[in-house]
Amino acid sequence: MAAAAAAGAGPEMVRGQVFDVGPRYTNLSYIGEGAYGMVCSAYDNVNKVRVAIKKISPFEHQTYCQRTLREIKILLRFRHENIIGINDIIRAPTIEQMKDVYIVQDLMETDLYKLLKTQHLSNDHICYFLYQILRGLKYIHSANVLHRDLKPSNLLLNTTCDLKICDFGLARVADPDHDHTGFLTEYVATRWYRAPEIMLNSKGYTKSIDIWSVGCILAEMLSNRPIFPGKHYLDQLNHILGILGSPSQEDLNCIINLKARNYLLSLPHKNKVPWNRLFPNADSKALDLLDKMLTFNPHKRIEVEQALAHPYLEQYYDPSDEPIAEAPFKFDMELDDLPKEKLKELIFEETARFQPGYRS
Results as ranks from 00 to 15, higher is better:
Val173Phe: 10
Thr351Cys: 01
Asp288Glu: 15
Phe331Lys: 01
Met333Lys: 15
Val104Met: 01
Gly245Asn: 01
Met108Lys: 14
Pro268Tyr: 06
Tyr43Glu: 10
Glu314Trp: 00
Asn276Met: 02
Pro339Val: 10
Leu265Tyr: 03
Leu107Thr: 06
Arg50Leu: 14
Pro323Trp: 03
Arg135Phe: 04
Ile227Leu: 11
Ser248Arg: 04
Asn154Asp: 00
Leu107Gly: 02
Asn276Gly: 11
Tyr205Gln: 04
Gln306Asn: 03
Leu75Glu: 14
Glu71Asn: 00
Cys254Arg: 11
Lys272Arg: 12
Arg277Lys: 13
His120Glu: 05
Ala352Pro: 00
Asn257Met: 07
Val188Gly: 13
Glu12Pro: 00
Arg79Ser: 14
Ser122Met: 05
Ala171Phe: 03
Glu322Pro: 00
Ile56Asp: 14
Ser142Gln: 05
Phe168Gln: 09
Asp44Pro: 04
Phe354Cys: 09
Ser208Asn: 09
Ala171Asp: 09
Ile211Tyr: 07
Met13Pro: 15
Pro229Arg: 06
Leu244Trp: 06
His141Pro: 12
Pro328Gln: 04
Leu252Pro: 12
Arg79Gly: 09
Arg77Ser: 04
Tyr316Cys: 04
Ser223Cys: 12
Leu75Lys: 07
Leu170Ser: 02
Ile324Arg: 05
Leu163Gly: 01
Glu322Lys: 11
Gln236Asp: 07
Val49Gly: 12
Lys259Gly: 08
Met38Asp: 09
Lys114Phe: 05
Ala260Lys: 02
Val173Ile: 05
Glu186Gly: 00
Lys330Val: 05
Ala282His: 01
Ile347Trp: 15
Asp251Phe: 05
Ala92His: 10
Pro226Ile: 04
Met333Tyr: 10
Lys99Thr: 10
Phe296Trp: 02
Ala5Cys: 09
His299Lys: 10
Lys340Gln: 02
Thr68Arg: 12
Thr206Ser: 15
Arg194Ile: 14
Leu308Tyr: 02
Thr118Cys: 07
Arg24Phe: 01
Tyr113Pro: 03
Gly16Asp: 00
Gln62Trp: 13
Ile217Met: 09
Thr110Ser: 15
His147Glu: 04
Ala286Gln: 03
Leu163Ile: 09
Gly215Pro: 06
Gln236Leu: 14
Glu314Asp: 13
Lys99Met: 15
Ile126Phe: 14
Asp177Val: 14
Trp192Asp: 04
Tyr263Asn: 15
Ile56Met: 09
Gly215Val: 14
His180Tyr: 12
Asp210Asn: 12
Phe78Trp: 05
Tyr139Asn: 14
Ile53Val: 05
Tyr43Thr: 09
Val18Lys: 08
Ile56Phe: 15
Glu12Asp: 15
Thr118Gly: 09
Leu241Phe: 10
Gln249Cys: 04
Glu305Ile: 05
Asp210Leu: 09
Leu75Tyr: 05
Glu350Asn: 07
Ser223Arg: 06
Asn87Glu: 06
Arg24Leu: 13
Tyr187Gln: 03
Arg79Gln: 09
Pro311Glu: 09
Leu287Cys: 02
Leu265Arg: 05
Val188Ser: 09
Asn27Lys: 14
His299Asn: 15
Glu186Ala: 07
Tyr187Trp: 03
Leu289Pro: 00
Tyr187Glu: 04
Ser153Phe: 03
Ala5His: 05
Glu334Met: 01
Asn201Met: 07
Asp336Ala: 12
Gly136Ala: 02
Arg353Tyr: 12
Asn47Tyr: 15
Asp20Lys: 03
Tyr316Ala: 01
Glu71Trp: 08
Leu278Lys: 11
Glu197Arg: 12
Arg15Tyr: 02
Met98Arg: 08
Glu349Gly: 07
His310Phe: 00
Gly215Arg: 12
Gly10Arg: 13
Gly8Met: 01
Ile217Asp: 06
Gly85Pro: 07
Glu303Ala: 09
Ser208Asp: 06
Pro11Ile: 04
Leu267Asp: 00
Glu220Asp: 13
Phe331Met: 00
Leu28Val: 12
Val14Met: 08
Ser153Met: 01
Arg79Leu: 12
Gln97Glu: 10
Lys340Cys: 10
Leu112Trp: 00
Arg277His: 06
Val214Cys: 10
Asp175Glu: 13
Leu116Thr: 01
Ser57Gln: 02
Ala42Tyr: 03
Ala5Val: 13
Arg261Lys: 10
Ser29Leu: 10
Ile103Asp: 05
His269Met: 04
Phe59Cys: 13
Arg50Gln: 13
Ile103Leu: 06
Tyr25Trp: 00
Cys166Ile: 07
Ile72Ala: 09
Tyr139Leu: 07
Glu341Gly: 06
Pro93Asn: 02
Ala352Lys: 07
Ile126Thr: 07
Cys216Met: 07
Glu326Asp: 15
Glu322Ile: 01
Tyr263Ile: 07
Thr295Asn: 13
Ile72Thr: 05
Ala260Arg: 01
Lys48Ile: 12
Phe279Ala: 07
Asn238Asp: 00
Ala260Tyr: 00
Leu218Ser: 12
Asp318Asn: 14
Tyr128Ile: 05
Glu322Val: 13
Met13Ile: 15
Arg50Glu: 11
Asp88Phe: 03
Pro328Ile: 07
Arg172Leu: 14
Leu69Ile: 03
Asn281His: 07
Thr110Gly: 05
Gln105Lys: 14
Asn276Val: 10
Ile74Thr: 12
Glu220His: 04
Glu12His: 10
Leu218Gln: 14
Lys151Pro: 02
Arg359Asp: 07
Ala6Gly: 11
Asn257Leu: 10
Asp149Gly: 01
Asn87Lys: 15
Cys166Leu: 06
Tyr317Trp: 01
Met333Val: 04
Asp179Ser: 05
Val101Pro: 06
Ile89Cys: 12
Pro319Thr: 14
Leu157Cys: 03
Ile165Thr: 06
Phe279Ile: 15
Pro11Phe: 03
Phe78Asp: 02
Glu345Ile: 03
Gln97Ile: 05
